[in-house]
């Protein structure tokens, strides 16, 4: 069965009406639902990078991994979120000798700097 339109006819731009229960969302539906949110988050990321650029001093491993993670977005594979998470992950397999903090910083500092 064809998915019924979720838009008001003759509107100059999409007007989404929810819910459309029982019908799986198609790509346009997904864009209707999430495009503006994703657009805002993307601008936030760009602004964050601009902010880093404007500041003085050196960046560290967190920003290096952030830039590596961005490459996952250029992929056409359907596991971009997984690859972004892996870009920030500790790639080693052995336990660390001792935990000297409870906190995680969001990026792996490297074996030399790990707890």
């Amino acid at each position: 069965m064809a998915i019924q339109s979720n838009r008001i006819a003759n509107e100059p731009f999409p007007v989404f009406i929810w819910p459309f229960q029982g019908h799986m969302a198609d790509r346009k539906n997904i864009l209707d639902l999430y495009f503006l949110d994703a657009r805002a988050r993307l601008i936030d990321i760009a602004a964050f990078m601009d902010r880093v650029n404007r500041a003085e001093g050196e960046t560290d491993f967190r920003y290096d991994q952030f830039q590596d993670a961005l490459k996952a977005l250029e992929s056409d594979q359907p596991n971009r979120a997984e690859n972004v998470l892996l870009a920030f992950s500790d790639p080693t397999d052995e336990p660390i000798p001792v935990a000297t903090t409870k906190a995680a910083c969001g990026a792996w500092p490297g074996e030399a700097n790990s707890d």
Binding site: L85, F88, D90, P91, D93, A104, G106, A107
Partner: peptide, 8 residues
Amino acid sequence: PHLEDKRK
């Protein structure tokens, strides 16, 4: 675990 420690 959280964040960078989760996978391992």
